[in-house]
Design a protein around this nucleic acid. Structure first.
Lengths: 241, 241
DNA sequence: CCTCCCTGAACCAATATTGAGCCAATTCTT
DNA sequence: AAGAATTGGCTCAATATTGGTTCAGGGAGG
């Protein structure tokens, strides 16, 4: 526990004893302060009512009413036998998010790709080092020369990945990693197999070439546009619209 | 109040906060910390459950549940008779992605928010039901009327969340959930605390109002623009550029 | 006197932890 | 190769923790 927090507690206590009337709503705001100072973010759980009550020097009934305010706010949820939890900040919900993501539809994801990938291409055109651009070009070359679908698939994905890699935005890179993992799962695999053809492969390669050219010219605007055009083709092929 | 009594209080406080209740989820986070500090990287093996249990002073059953958390999010795999092993070697696993995301900078995230949230607002203007729009308006109203910072914080976040909720894109919604969780963690707290002021709050409210108006007019283009303007304000306040 | 809020206490129901034992897969020792 | 030791998987009953609820009383302010 940080020293500042302890001091805060002490101050609260002294204030509390100087001003003997501590009512539920006051306690509720004190709790909110401690929550928004990040006090209980770790594992998102706040202490049991009985502990809080004795800590604040009030009866459990009062503390219950105080916590009820937070519950009404939606700041907190309570479970009998388990405890009281912050709604926003618990790491457990991270797993839940990822779980739900696994069920999202390819259509939804393609929509978001069309937001993120052009931006990534644009960032890359501005920020990439010569070496990184070479890596992109290399991925494109291998994909173009590949003979079978799995190899093409792999280097196609790698091409996109390497563009994200030089976007200089860690968060964007990780979102793309997420998408990449999701795309390697069941519903996508069928879809990709169905939609693959030699003709489409050569179209993809041309479009990749356009993106690569724009990157090499350091032209963010046309990189973005070329990527968007490519994704629209992919979407059409994958989802048939 | 006599000084001795104050000291008593202080001691009580420290005692109370130094002795946290150890439950399975707490142990899980403690384990994660030790793992990420490189404790057991050598041959990637974690001590047997029985040892860990006695080390943490809990029953083996409890330790088993704790380790199960790690197993669930893919941090670890267990083999009967052999032991429990780290899986961290695989950078493409969901768990690894999530782990790295926790370390992304607010600046990077704000950049991505400026891509996604205007789009979400635009989708929402087109797709939202009347009831959903009412929910957005309600969040805005409560935020505007809130008296203290934590309440405002909460309903501010809720406003944004409800816009995503009516974007009709599950994947987008989940990405926003991720951002929301990350924003409730350590590095953001300082920043938010530092940047808050009554004046800024009222500016945020006005900007929210502009977004809301555009949504109610079912005008995707201006919803998107209003949201972008708002995010630029937030970014300026948060990051000082 | 009345109202409102807090106190203190007891009990309930849901959930978690304990402690113990046994099984099955694996590894180590003889 | 056979047996002992280690290790995760599993079950069960007893106990502890925790939020939910109710009730009788006290004290401050109208």
């Amino acid at each position: 526990m940080p020293e500042a927090a302890i001091n805060g507690l002490i101050l609260d206590q002294i204030k509390a004893t100087q001003m003997p009337k501590l009512v539920a709503s006051d306690i509720a705001t004190a709790l909110k302060k401690r929550i928004s100072s990040g006090e209980w973010v770790e594992n998102g759980r706040i202490p049991p009512e009985r502990d809080l009550a004795s800590e604040f020097g009030v009866a459990r009934n009062t503390m219950r009413r105080a916590v009820s305010f937070l519950e009404d706010d939606g700041t907190v949820v309570r479970h009998v036998g388990r405890g009281t939890f912050l709604t926003a900040a618990n790491p457990a919900s991270m797993a839940a998010v990822v779980g739900r993501m696994e069920g999202t539809s390819p259509a939804d994801m393609m929509e978001i790709r069309q937001l993120l990938e052009p931006a990534a291409a644009s960032f890359a055109a501005t920020n990439a080092s010569a070496m990184e651009l070479n890596a992109v070009r290399e991925a494109h070359r291998i994909a173009s020369e590949s003979q079978d679908m799995p190899t093409f698939e792999h280097w196609d994905a790698e091409f996109h990945h390497r563009i994200f890699a030089c976007s200089r935005n860690e968060f964007l890179k990780e979102i793309h990693n997420l998408m990449r993992i999701l795309r390697n799962q069941a519903p996508w695999f069928e879809m990709k197999k169905r939609s693959f053809s030699e003709e489409r492969r050569s179209i993809y390669c041309e479009e990749h070439q356009a993106v690569l050219d724009a990157l090499l010219r350091r032209d963010p605007e046309s990189a973005s546009q070329a990527m968007l055009a490519h994704l629209k083709t992919v979407q059409r092929n994958l989802l048939g619209r």
